[in-house]
Design a protein around this nucleic acid. Structure first.
Length: 154
DNA sequence: GCCAACGTTGGC
DNA sequence: GCCAACGTTGGC
């Protein structure tokens, strides 16, 4: 089983959106970065677990625990002209972009802030991609040890 | 294939 | 609002 961090701006997509969704499950779509795309397409598996990370907000940090319920499949938003994520170069026969489905396992009792995670950047969380300087990836792999450590901070 | 310019991300 | 970092674009 793989472990992931999924980054989102809470004003765009939040834990509340997952709570409202049928079966608390949403498509994770709109990713338009090749490195992230490759992970969604090739490495995401049903039953993988992921931490939802809020960025671009007052208090960046980990907000929820989710489960992957469907591995990579062609991102349908790339096919829709009206979608902000529309990409004419992505076709059903040869999709360029991929999505996965995630289900909310639970919101965390509190936001585990990025500032708090950084305190462990040279210790237990050494190597965590989220903490890399200038990191902009919206989908990141993480080790099971890092995953467990972060949850234990809750 | 190189690389400068540009746009975007995202923490602070 | 600032700025560092990065990805993409496009001219050559």
């Amino acid at each position: 089983m793989n472990h992931w961090i999924l980054k989102t701006e809470p004003t765009v997509f939040s834990v509340a959106d997952l709570e409202r969704a049928p079966r608390r499950t949403s498509m994770w779509d709109g990713v338009r970065n090749y490195q992230a795309r490759n992970m969604l397409r090739d490495d995401f598996r049903r039953a993988d677990r992921a931490l939802l990370h809020y960025s671009g907000c007052d208090t960046p940090g980990i907000a929820a625990l989710v489960r992957v319920t469907r591995g990579g499949y062609a991102d349908p938003t790339a096919f829709r002209r009206a979608s902000p994520h529309y990409d004419a170069t992505s076709t059903r026969a040869n999709p360029r972009w991929y999505a996965v489905d995630v289900q909310l396992e639970r919101a965390l009792a509190r936001i585990i802030t990025l500032a708090e995670l950084k305190q462990h950047a040279n210790g237990a969380l050494k190597g965590l991609i989220l903490l890399n300087r200038g990191n902009r990836l919206s989908v990141m792999p993480m080790s099971e040890a890092h995953f467990a450590f972060i949850l234990a901070l809750e």
